[in-house]
Simulated assay, not measured.
Amino acid sequence: MAESLYLPTAASKAEKYEALLPQIEALISGEPDLTANLANISAALKGAFGFFWVGFYIVKEDVLVLGPFQGPIACTRIHRGKGVCGTAWEQGKTQLVPDVDAFPGHIACSSASKSEIVVPGFYKDEVLLILDIDSDQLDDFDPTDQEYLEKMMKILEQTIA
């Protein structure tokens, strides 16, 4: 088990993701507990990129319920189709939001959040969980984040049984 992440200091965002993803895969491979894996992934992403908030919501009884996260306190339950996370769940696709205040129906769990990316994770072709990452900067996420976070979710999906 890894206890530290090793990331290049003078690297592009893509190079940091390239270095991080194999470490996340090694960290969660062989660990069957979803909560433990989500906790370590949250910590790894926050540590690597310094995001304002990183965490997961898990589908339970037809509502998204807050799971492991890193950052300030958060909304506990989110309904399908509500806010960015509920929209990602309903549509089954990544939501890249440069300005959360411009997103119709945005749920403001924190007024400090300015931009957001939300990536669904699947089990048996159904959305099982949501990765939610917030930034306190406008337009902080781009297609590079989307590409690598979707790859990371595919790695996570392989561990879900």
Rank of each mutant, 00 (worst) to 15 (best):
S111H: 11
Q95Y: 03
V97H: 03
D132F: 03
D139K: 12
G92R: 11
P143C: 05
D99M: 00
F122P: 10
D132R: 03
D136A: 13
D101M: 11
A112W: 03
K93R: 15
S110W: 01
K93E: 15
V118E: 01
P104I: 00
L131M: 12
E116R: 03
L138F: 13
T144D: 06
P143D: 12
V127L: 02
V100S: 05
A112K: 13
D136Y: 07
K124I: 12
D132A: 06
S115P: 09
D145H: 03
D132W: 03
S135L: 05
P104F: 00
V97F: 05
L138A: 02
F103K: 00
K93L: 11
K124P: 08
D125P: 09
E116G: 05
F141C: 01
S111V: 13
D142F: 02
I130V: 14
D140T: 05
L138C: 00
D101A: 13
P104K: 01
A112R: 12
I133S: 03
D140Y: 15
D132M: 06
F122I: 10
S113H: 02
L129N: 08
D99Y: 00
T144H: 04
I117E: 10
D125F: 11
Y123W: 14
L128V: 11
H106A: 06
D101L: 13
F141R: 01
C109W: 09
D139Y: 05
S110A: 12
Q137L: 13
T94F: 12
S135F: 06
S135H: 11
